[in-house]
């Protein structure tokens, strides 16, 4: 193992009196003071937050929201993978169940009945976005989430969809439907049946 022993020089009596470091400290703080204080330099680097807004860089991981497709339909199919993967268990999905509301877009059979993210628990890790097979949830640029109660910070499906906006992707289920329709119909119709579309 290559351990390099750094020699520690013993301090001289003068240095041990704290006086040189004290003076050095005074110098450092004075220089900063001089640069920043009004009438002397006045170059604060503080951003005046509410008036001045930070430019959020690309790839920033803000709050996760649900997105809609180009036609304004819910993309989420309630597969619950994000709920499963979420490290702080911030996501809670209520699946539609047997008699649930059908999905609001053609050919997708399933849509969440309720989708909640507890923004107080969320750690903005982005695993939900990464795991989503439907490209339905994205970490967006919101970093300033506020509320006056804990309940208010649990965002429901409606709110998440509203905040999330639209994500134009390949519309997987629509694509499948078009493909099925373009194909020849079946030689024999098997009854009883109901096609999903």
């Amino acid at each position: 193992m290559s351990t390099k022993v750094v020699e520690r020089k013993p301090l001289s009596a003068w240095e041990r009196s704290y006086i040189p470091s004290f003076l050095g400290g005074l110098g450092v703080t004075w220089n900063h003071f001089k640069r920043t204080a009004p009438f002397l330099g006045n170059k604060p680097i503080t951003m005046e937050y509410p008036e001045q807004k930070w430019v959020v860089p690309e790839g920033y991981r803000g709050a996760p929201y649900l997105v809609k497709d180009q036609e304004g339909a819910t993309k989420c199919v309630s597969c619950q993978l994000c709920e499963f993967v979420c490290p702080p268990k911030a996501i809670r999905i209520t699946p539609p169940g047997e008699n649930g509301q059908p999905a609001d877009r053609a050919n997708a059979e399933k849509m969440p009945r309720e989708f909640e993210i507890n923004m107080l628990r969320c750690i903005f890790c982005g695993l939900c976005q990464e795991v989503c097979p439907e490209e339905a949830i994205f970490l967006q640029k919101d970093y300033s989430l506020t509320g006056t109660s804990r309940e208010e910070m649990v965002y429901n499906k409606e709110k998440l969809l509203k905040l999330g906006g639209t994500h134009a992707g390949i519309q997987k289920w629509k694509h499948k439907l078009e493909e099925a329709e373009a194909q020849e119909s079946f030689p024999v119709a098997t009854e009883p049946q109901k096609h999903s579309h």
Binding site: E109, E179, A180, A182, Q183, T190, K194, H195, S196
Partner: peptide, 11 residues
């Protein structure tokens, strides 16, 4: 190629 599509959600 396109996959063969068959009936879905048959009761």
């Amino acid at each position: 190629e396109a996959k063969v599509h068959k009936p879905k959600a048959v009761d």
